[in-house]
Design a protein around this nucleic acid. Structure first.
Length: 539
DNA sequence: TATCCTTTGAAGTCT
DNA sequence: AGACTTCAAAGGATA
């Protein structure tokens, strides 16, 4: 079993996390990635990605137009981000943080001022910007020092393009810093973090005066007042190793003492049941409904994100940038497939990150339970749809009209295979490279014929990567089965068809391998999954 | 305006 | 213990 030694020296028992395993679909994807016909697409896609990553100079219209424009509320952070970008650049120039990829702790996640966890605040892809920097680097120079014509601002740090957490630039574990306090325990600053900070004028790393640097929260009070510190909500916790963990102590609306909301706290005033009772604040202490009052006063602490959610947040922008698709459902399908196409090592990073986020979450909110959020949402959709006897007989998860989604996905999510290609092509080098630790499994799964269900086994625990903890495997399997029953590893389905217009004309050509693959897949779908296609009709 | 859709995973409840 | 349900993010689509 691969060691999840991410984070190096992490004492959190990284190995207890489980890794989900790719199903046959993954293999298909990887195989198909090397199909020559797809290579061009890959190149195109990678160019797109690179362009967004490099951001910068290229003002090329087409790509630029497709990039999500920076949201107004984000603009206000541009300077700040540029500063961090510059800081990063300087640090890199100085040879800092050139260590192993897992030296991911000198990163800071910069949330938007608006609470990214607020249900009403749209979380932009750049909501979390992970910046590689030294921990104490919180001194804020003038913006003039931010610009450095000598080198372009790293694209992934720019606000002008969707922030893509590129693995080459940012380790997936970096978001952990937003929650983790283990590395900032008072009195024991991370050893890899130099006490130096950048001189605001020269940009040269300097050793701060003790008076201006708190060991744990080096941001000077003045700076705090000037800009919201990205970790502002976390700082109080970092400052005190015995921070009051109970939500009860949090000021209303999930604000910390700093006034900066914790990402996981959603004010009931903002996210609450549409009960219509919004006058809680003014009518405090009404004895008539004490219980309800208490509940309303309780900040809504969101669940910590799981590995896939973290992955989604990181990769969504990238997928969106690559595709013309905009429906999140479609994007999520692609992301789901990409998730399965990740190597175990890559997944392990996210599992590790998720695990640490959970741990930190539990530290921050010891009394919190997922149960607290039960019923907070509007009633979940199709819970009561099983009434239809026909559907229940045919499909455990009634779905709306299923439409093959392969073409779009194929375009956007290169990995999606055409079955023909998969069968014709050998495992690709890239696949082997992508998942060096699972070559054998790859082979065994490649040969798998079309299957109606991706997950049952795809999500089963990998023989070499046993899932930890409770019956998460069965749990996840069962949970996913509801939605994946009708899905095929290579044929994703959407209740709404993805318009073919999302595909470039070249791919729509009948001679296009993608077109062929789509037809092939569609045909296979019709043959193998007739039931899934009828699931919806009755409503 | 609120909910649905869609994904995976964690954690809850239910049988 | 296992099956099942809910929620976490996201944002366009839909009612």
């Amino acid at each position: 079993m691969p060691q999840l030694n991410g984070g190096g020296g992490d004492d959190l028992g990284a190995n207890d996390e489980l890794i989900s395993f790719k199903d046959e679909g993954e293999q298909e994807e990887k195989i198909s990635e090397n199909v020559s016909s797809e290579r061009d697409l890959d190149e195109v896609k990678s160019s797109l990605v690179n362009e967004s990553e490099n951001n910068s100079s290229s003002s090329d219209s087409e790509q630029t137009d497709r990039r999500p424009r920076p949201r107004p509320e984000l603009e206000s952070y541009e300077k700040q981000r540029e500063y961090f970008a510059e800081a990063l650049r300087r640090q890199q120039d100085g040879g800092f943080f050139k260590g192993p990829p897992y030296a991911g702790y000198p990163f800071l996640m910069i949330p938007d001022i608006t609470n990214p966890y607020l249900s009403n605040g749209s979380l932009s892809p750049s909501t979390r910007t992970y910046l590689q920097m030294k921990w104490p680097l919180l001194d804020v120079p003038g913006t003039a020092a931010l610009k450095d014509s000598r080198s372009p601002t790293p694209g992934h740090l720019s606000n002008k393009v969707p922030v893509v957490q590129h693995p080459h630039h940012v380790h997936p574990l970096t978001p952990l810093i937003t929650y983790s306090n283990e590395h900032f325990s008072p009195g024991t600053p991370p050893s890899h973090l130099s006490p130096e900070i950048l001189d605001p004028k020269t940009g040269i790393p300097r050793t701060p005066h003790p008076s201006e640097l708190s060991p744990y929260y080096p941001l000077s009070p003045g700076a705090v007042g000037q800009i919201p510190h990205p970790l502002g909500w976390l700082v109080p916790h970092l400052v005190s190793s015995r921070f009051s963990p109970h939500m009860v102590h949090h000021p209303p609306h999930g604000l910390h003492q700093t006034g900066i909301p914790h990402p996981a706290i959603v004010s009931p005033a903002i996210k609450q049941e549409p009960s219509g009772d919004n006058t809680s604040s003014s009518t405090h202490g009404k004895p008539s409904m004490p219980v309800k009052k208490e509940e309303e006063k309780k900040p809504h602490v969101k669940k910590p994100l799981n590995a896939f959610m973290l992955y989604m947040k990181e990769m969504r922008a990238k997928v969106v940038a690559e595709c013309t698709l905009k429906e999140s459902a479609a994007i999520n399908q692609i992301l789901g497939r990409r998730w399965h196409s990740l190597s175990r090592e890559e997944q392990a990073k996210y599992y590790e990150l998720a695990r640490k986020e959970r741990q930190l979450h539990s530290q921050l909110y010891p009394g919190w339970s997922a149960r607290d959020n039960y019923g907070k949402r509007k009633k979940r959709k199709r819970e009561n749809k099983p009434d239809s006897p026909h559907e229940s007989n045919f499909s455990p998860q009634p779905k709306k009209q299923c439409v093959p989604y392969l073409p779009s996905e194929k375009m956007c999510d290169s990995p999606t295979s055409s079955h023909g290609s998969m069968l014709d092509s050998p495992a690709t080098p890239s696949a082997a490279l992508a998942s060096p630790a699972a070559p054998a499994a790859t082979h065994s799964e490649q040969a798998q014929p079309l299957s109606l269900t991706t997950k049952p086994e795809g999500r089963a625990h990998h023989p070499h990567f046993p899932l930890p903890g409770k019956a998460s495997g069965s749990s996840s399997t069962s949970s996913s089965s509801s939605t994946s029953t009708a899905s095929h590893p290579s044929i994703s389905l959407l209740t709404r068809p993805i318009p073919f217009t999302t595909l470039p004309p070249s791919l729509l050509s009948p001679s296009s391998p993608f077109h062929q693959a789509a037809l092939h897949s569609h045909h296979a779908l019709l043959q193998t999954q007739p039931l899934s296609l009828v699931t919806k009709s009755v409503e």
